[in-house]
Amino acid sequence: MKHLTLNPQLTIKEISIPNTNLNAFIIDDFLVNADSVMHFAKNIAYFNPMYSDNSYYPGVRDNMPEPYVRLLQDFFQENIIPKLVGREQCNTIVHKSLISLVTCSPSQLLTEQKMPHVDSCKDNAFAFVHYLSGEELGGTSIYRYIPKDIIEFHEKDEVILDDMLNEVTSKPVEHHGYITNSTSLFEQVLKVEAKFNRLVIYQGNLLHGANLTSKESYSGDTTHGRFSITSFASISDE
């Protein structure tokens, strides 16, 4: 992957997650030039079928090349870890990074795809979304599960995930497609807009989901569709 370089003029904005002690990080103009990433996405990536990565991501994915993974890991270690209170000396490893294209129409969604989710119930797990499309194709939101008044999940809260699924199943009128706003079960507490070459980082145990409000957001069109790079990292004291 050629010409993959951090932008020395990138900006990092730290925003508070309401009703938690956590922050999300919004990094604008992440790469000097995202052309090589887009070339990979549109011309080289081999997109595997939906669910082949054992997730409920509503589209197709392929692994990102190692140069991107290394760049992301180095950036996280050097620029974000020092900002994490009490974790300034932690080490990080990015263990998965996936070029992702949404392809699933709302009518074909499983129940699990009609609700926000967590990537992990561990507080040492972090999620990254690198947007490769604009605001019109949707960003990411953080939610509160209203019945249990919970935004940040821990291992003891795993049983709540089954409750959430059952509740969503019982309210099909409200949860008939992609969740993009508050419902009687989920309150949207933070909304991050997409922007081309914007990276957003947050803890993976926060309840979250993508804002797919446009038909183009799930068209699967490699020219105009919603491309993003979704990555996952963990941190440790070792």
Rank of each mutant, 00 (worst) to 15 (best):
H3L: 02
L4V: 04
L4D: 03
T5R: 15
L6R: 07
N7L: 06
L10I: 02
L10M: 10
T11V: 14
I15Q: 11
I15R: 06
I15C: 07
S16K: 15
P18M: 07
N19G: 06
T20I: 04
L22W: 06
L22F: 07
N23F: 13
F25S: 02
F25V: 05
I26W: 12
I27G: 10
D28R: 05
D29Y: 05
A34V: 10
S36R: 05
S36L: 08
N43W: 01
A45P: 02
F47E: 02
F47D: 01
N48F: 14
M50H: 11
M50T: 14
Y51V: 06
D53T: 13
D53M: 14
D53F: 15
N54Q: 12
Y56A: 07
G59L: 01
V60T: 13
R61P: 08
N63A: 10
P65V: 14
E66L: 09
Y68V: 13
Y68Q: 05
V69C: 04
R70H: 09
R70L: 10
Q73W: 06
Q73G: 06
F76P: 06
P82R: 00
K83H: 08
V85K: 15
R87M: 09
E88P: 00
C90N: 13
V94D: 03
H95G: 10
K96Q: 13
L98M: 15
L98N: 12
L101N: 04
V102W: 05
C104E: 14
S105K: 15
P106D: 00
L110P: 10
E112R: 08
E112Q: 15
H117V: 05
S120A: 12
S120L: 03
D123T: 10
A127D: 07
A127L: 04
Y131E: 02
S133K: 08
E136V: 05
G139D: 06
T140F: 08
Y145M: 02
Y145Q: 03
Y145I: 01
Y145S: 03
I146A: 01
P147G: 08
P147K: 09
F153G: 04
E155Q: 12
E155T: 10
E158L: 10
V159K: 15
L165H: 13
T169F: 12
S170H: 05
S170P: 04
K171A: 09
P172L: 04
H176E: 11
G177T: 04
Y178I: 00
N181C: 12
N181S: 15
S182Q: 08
T183D: 00
S184Y: 04
L185H: 05
E187C: 02
E187F: 11
E187Y: 11
E187K: 07
Q188N: 14
Q188R: 13
K191G: 03
V192R: 03
V192D: 00
A194P: 12
R198V: 05
L199T: 07
V200C: 11
Y202Q: 04
N205C: 12
L206G: 01
L206T: 15
L207D: 00
A210L: 07
A210Y: 01
L212C: 08
E216C: 05
Y218W: 11
Y218Q: 00
S219W: 02
G220S: 03
D221Q: 13
T223F: 11
T223P: 03
H224L: 11
R226W: 12
R226P: 00
S231Y: 01
A233T: 09
I235W: 10
S236L: 09
S236D: 15
D237W: 11
E238V: 14
